[in-house]
Write a protein that binds this DNA or RNA. Structure first.
Lengths: 343, 343
DNA sequence: CTGAAAGCGCTTACAG
DNA sequence: CTGAAAGCGCTTACAG
């Protein structure tokens, strides 16, 4: 029960107001106060008003801990990210936060930094706080170990799927993204298309490349040079690979890059080589990272992986799981091509 | 109390184990089980072992809600950010999450998106969850309205200080950062230094410019063109302003840019103009955003605002406030110059 | 329509 | 050294 602090201006001031204080001030029992505040039936309208007024007067905020203890549900979820640092987590996190926020849920954020020990530590803390569910955001698109199937709460894996197929996973459809990108270039009349991409150890790279080749084959085309050029996700690799590409295949008319950074590197070299983009050669990136696409000359066409949507979808899927829908499997979400000036 | 599910392999399996289950299994009272688990005195060593063993057997995890209800402290804090989107929040958030994590605190993350309504909504939710304290991360370095002084918990403002001087605020020292940057260039022998920076509506821009001018004055220098060139925080502005600068002052020997993006724009133009960096002209940025500094040709010298340290410091300051240290005021944290190839 | 009582899962004096 | 009892702040049958 709260401590009465002042009654200076006639108003009641209570330090840490509890339902007890509200009830007392309204002249009713705690039970009635609870029912009035929670909109339960069988409360006299006048009583209800009086209780609400009392609550307002002393700025009563119900203790969610006590409510959660009774309900067995806390209205909180945990979000464990592999690396906050990596920018891919952020939009997912934003989408999830947004979806939960409107659902009156609060989000515990934990950064595991790709460390399994730290992940276990955070998991334990979240279980102890009795979160209603968990979203695990991977640091790459590569599949990751499951948190286990004997947890007392549902888990949704986002971005990186769980290795356990019975878990619920939501990922971006990288293969489709590759196909969409290639289709866009083909539609623009390009026929000598090269693909410069990142580290072959990333499924994001190989899946996209697969999608690209499938789509090109549909139009009877193949990649310039016969295959995708793997390297790293950097501007520097974009530059080096483009230099090499121009030397080997001066007639290339489009470069599909595995990331916006690689595309920026490509644009730099093309400009220095005197190639006009997009007239002589088209360039395209992945990720649609505004900071890179809009600063480019000309503005860069890119594939947006819709990560914020992914985060929102993960949150909704978790809601469903909390409500009893335990069907597992990997769900792939579509991306979208954002056309700017380079294609 | 938990539901016993199996005793297949002789092991006891309990669904949602509570302290009651642990006590029962160990053959002691709930009170004794509690004391044993919490390392209280006056428990027979053998009893203690038995209780711990029982807890382990059924994977007992104490309910933090119940503990919090009793303790009046929840071991949770709220982190309200102005814009998750803006990349400045992230390092601060990482630093704070790190500091709290090692302090066994869990962090509620809320994204207010610069909307006062949403901020109030989140504040209410956090108060209801009885967080022990709050960190408010601004979206720009400009001062922001206080959350009010009648909150039942301490608040630390990070990045953007509170307008109320009695609040606790931690910010990066932009003026000092400007001075440090200028000092670095002077030490490198530059004497015709220009300053191209962002939107004059940002204190980050004007404070840094002030610091630059103060430091130059110390060496008897003034900015090329007499004043800082304000524009926007973009590569494009960096390009345009540099073009203009070269036209007006072809003898400039250093460009101090207000952000790494602006610096990237400057580097592009210098390269096209045939100016050798850093031999003929030095370039320097702010923010030390790795993605821009390391991709630059040559690699960009920049000022790191130490935001992760800022986040960590904010967390520690909040700990102190929770422990009763209520001294307010704005504390300015130092930045550091990260030297690469452009200076 | 209202309120006394039990209980959510735990901790802490207080007796034994 | 151990345990019965009270209590944290709330909600929900159950009587009145």
């Amino acid at each position: 029960m709260g401590v009465v602090v002042e009654l200076n201006d006639g108003a009641v001031r209570v330090k840490n107001p509890t339902l007890r204080d509200v009830a007392q001030l309204a002249g009713v029992s705690i039970a009635t106060a609870s029912k009035a505040l929670n909109g339960r039936d069988h409360v006299h309208p006048e009583t209800r008003t009086r209780v609400h007024e009392a609550a307002r007067l002393i700025s009563f905020t119900p203790n969610a801990l006590a409510q959660g203890l009774i309900a067995g549900q806390t209205g909180t979820v945990g979000l464990i990210t592999g690396d906050l640092d990596g920018r891919f987590s952020i939009p997912i996190l934003m989408g999830a936060e947004d979806a939960f926020g409107t659902g009156k849920m609060s989000v515990f954020l934990c950064d595991a930094r790709g460390d399994a020990i730290r992940e276990q530590y955070h998991l334990q803390a979240l279980l102890s706080r009795r979160v209603d569910g968990l979203i695990v955001v991977g640091s790459t698109t590569n599949p990751r170990p499951s948190l286990g199937s004997d947890l007392p709460i549902p888990v949704v894996y986002a971005y990186a799927p769980s290795l356990d197929a019975s878990d619920i996973s939501l990922v971006a459809d990288n293969e489709q993204a590759g196909s969409d990108a290639a289709a866009h270039l083909v539609k623009r009349g390009r026929i000598r298309i090269a693909h410069i991409t990142g580290d072959a150890g990333y499924l994001a790279a190989t899946d996209r490349a697969t999608g690209v080749e499938i789509e090109l084959a549909r139009s009877g085309l193949t990649l310039v040079g016969g295959e995708a050029r793997y390297g790293s996700w950097t501007e520097d690799w974009g530059r080096r690979a483009t230099q090499q590409l121009l030397a080997e295949h001066p007639d290339v008319d489009a470069i599909l890059c595995g990331s916006d950074q690689i595309a920026r590197g490509a644009l730099d070299i093309l400009r220095e080589a005197g190639k006009i983009v997009p007239d002589e050669i088209a360039v395209m990136g992945f990720d649609n990272w505004e900071i890179f696409t809009s600063g480019a000359r000309p503005a860069l066409t890119s594939v947006d992986m819709n990560l914020e949507t992914l985060g929102r979808a993960a949150a909704r899927r978790l809601f469903a799981a909390i409500d009893g829908d335990h069907s597992g499997g990997i769900q792939k979400l579509p991306c979208r091509v954002v056309v700017r000036e380079t294609t």
